[in-house]
Design a protein around this nucleic acid. Structure first.
Lengths: 151, 151
DNA sequence: CTACTTGCAAAAGGTTTGCATCTGA
DNA sequence: TCAGATGCAAACCTTTTGCAAGTAG
């Protein structure tokens, strides 16, 4: 048996692969695995961590350049977003559904996701007011999480 | 005669220098100039740009390492904030007064500052709800500015 | 077949660090 | 005087790129 999550991922992967085929790009096992790792990971991974996870989970050695190239490709395809946690690397997440923002602990770099309709709405208004065509937005709240407050 | 802006900066600089003296650090002409450049710059500068501006405005060659060390020091002192514009460098701004956020053009990297009390308030609530001690937050809205829409 | 992809290693940024020298308090 | 600051160059790290070999369609 397969869970709902698994079904959801398989469906997404199938659609995405057919999409990039139509655009004239080629699929590869490396891209599949990277997407799978991103989908199932609870954390926001850096390029190096993605390569490590692919090795661990699928026993495939994947070049770091391939990770970066794939991630950049996914970003252009609008299915992956980069996140600046302030630790010197970019971290990535799959972006299949509705937008959310992040609460980031400056001590342990833990990330809590949240979303707030009011804030979403306000952002659209602000972009409009300034004549911008809204593409994307990032809201990150930095602070000390409960665990780190007690250290 | 000196303008209000100048008076404001001189006062801030005097207070800040006395503050860091009390903490056992030393002042230097380099730090003064970096702060002055940040204060008077309309743009958000990268480390390299700060060094260039100091050379241009004050005719002093300042090592890039000194810029980074000073900026990092200022960040710890909470008077400078870093901003991720997505061009591969960190950009910095003096943070003397009340918090504001940024509307960033993904094409020309122009930055428009804004602030919104409702959003500020919401952020505090979200941090509280998740047990975080709020330290800081970054909200950046990415889009295409009017100029770049017509290119 | 023939593009597109991968992997490797080298290159390219941006940022940090070691060390000798200098300087503010 | 002397701890902290600077400047230079080397080191570091993350990310990108050139190129030869591999592979999907």
């Amino acid at each position: 048996m397969s869970t709902n999550q698994e079904k959801r991922f398989e469906l997404f992967l199938k659609n995405f692969k057919s999409h990039i085929s139509k655009l004239g790009f080629k699929n590869s096992i490396q891209k599949d695995y990277i997407l799978k790792i991103l989908f199932y990971s609870k954390d926001h991974l850096s390029a190096e961590e993605i390569a490590l996870e692919v090795q661990k989970e699928f026993n495939l050695d994947i070049g770091i350049a391939t990770v970066y190239r794939s991630i950049n490709f996914f970003e252009e395809m609008k299915i992956v977003e980069a996140l600046d946690v302030g630790d010197g690397t970019r971290r990535f997440e799959l972006n299949l559904e509705h937008h959310h923002d992040h609460l980031i602990c400056t001590s342990c770099h833990k990330i809590i996701e949240f979303s707030d309709d009011l804030i979403e709405l306000k952002q659209i208004k602000i972009a409009e007011k300034n004549g911008f065509i809204l593409k994307d937005h990032v809201m990150s709240i930095y602070g000390l999480c409960e665990d780190c407050q007690n250290k």
